[in-house]
Design a binder for these strands. Structure first.
Length: 111
DNA sequence: TGGGTGACTAAGT
DNA sequence: CACTTAGCCACCC
């Protein structure tokens, strides 16, 4: 059973991910920051283990890049939710953090 | 209890 | 602009 009923770091991470509205994204560092920690890696670890049942694609890296190794799967979700993307001419796509970036307490205030 | 690990980040080359 | 190095912190076995 998922530890979502506890007060663990994991449970808080999952709760934040659930709070991210469709079409919006948060960086690992921001999620950790909400928890009062800089454990961006721990957030990724938690997502890797328990995020499979959550909107893991709404949590991305600081540079706007999708989760390593899951870029294809994430892209399908972004297109399905109309997430603001930035198509680079040379490299792979990335998320438009300026438009899609979201934070608890800032409802719809992307601009 | 302790060591190794990773869906990370920022800075340097 | 792309790749490498070092620092981070919580989780798992």
């Amino acid at each position: 059973m998922l530890p979502a009923d506890g007060d663990d770091f994991v449970s808080h991470v999952l709760a934040i991910v659930e709070a991210i509205p469709p079409g919006r994204v948060m960086t690992y560092g921001d999620v950790a920051g909400v928890l009062g920690s800089r454990a961006a890696r721990a957030v990724g670890q938690t997502m890797a283990r328990y995020g499979s049942d959550r909107a893991w694609w709404r949590v991305i890296r600081a540079g706007g890049h999708p989760p390593a190794g899951h870029e294809e799967s994430a892209l399908a979700h972004y297109r399905a939710e109309n997430t603001p993307l930035v198509t680079s001419t040379t490299a792979a796509y990335r998320i438009d953090l300026r438009a899609a970036g979201w934070f608890p307490g800032s409802p719809g205030a992307a601009d």
